[in-house]
Design a protein around this nucleic acid. Structure first.
Length: 107
DNA sequence: GCCATGGCTAGTA
DNA sequence: GCCATGGCTAGTA
């Protein structure tokens, strides 16, 4: 497993309940600003094995990015259970729910 | 190697 | 545009 992959897994594991992060945000934090699509794949292939809160990851617009209808429904439901509110359909207000991790240096 | 394929995204128009 | 992956050919050995 590459360092990038490990980073991504660690970052996702730490997303607090009731908040979300975006693919690009996670990629950048893991050291690869253009690795958003890789985050997608990692999420897809590792979320089960590593018990990742996959539902707390959305696209840059704050929308649920899943293509699968049932998956979208599930993700939305999981987020709502954590108190996240949706506006017109499948979007959430990122300025309210986005999780901004504290960097090592400033802790 | 080549090429298509994504649960994307910054930055034009 | 980006960029790792996976499937599939060339084309060496």
């Amino acid at each position: 497993m590459t360092p990038f992959t490990e980073q991504v897994i660690n970052i996702i594991k730490k997303i607090p309940k009731g908040t979300v992060m975006t693919y690009g945000q996670i990629a950048a934090l893991a050291g690869s600003p253009r690795g958003a699509r890789q985050v997608v794949r990692i999420l897809h292939s590792m979320s089960k094995k590593y018990r990742l809160p996959w539902h707390r990851v959305v696209n840059a617009k704050g929308e649920i990015a899943l293509g699968d209808e049932e998956g979208r429904y599930t993700q939305k439901a999981l987020l709502q259970e954590e108190g996240v509110l949706f506006v017109d359909g499948d979007r959430i207000n990122l300025s309210v729910y986005r999780h901004e991790p504290v960097l090592e240096g400033e802790r």
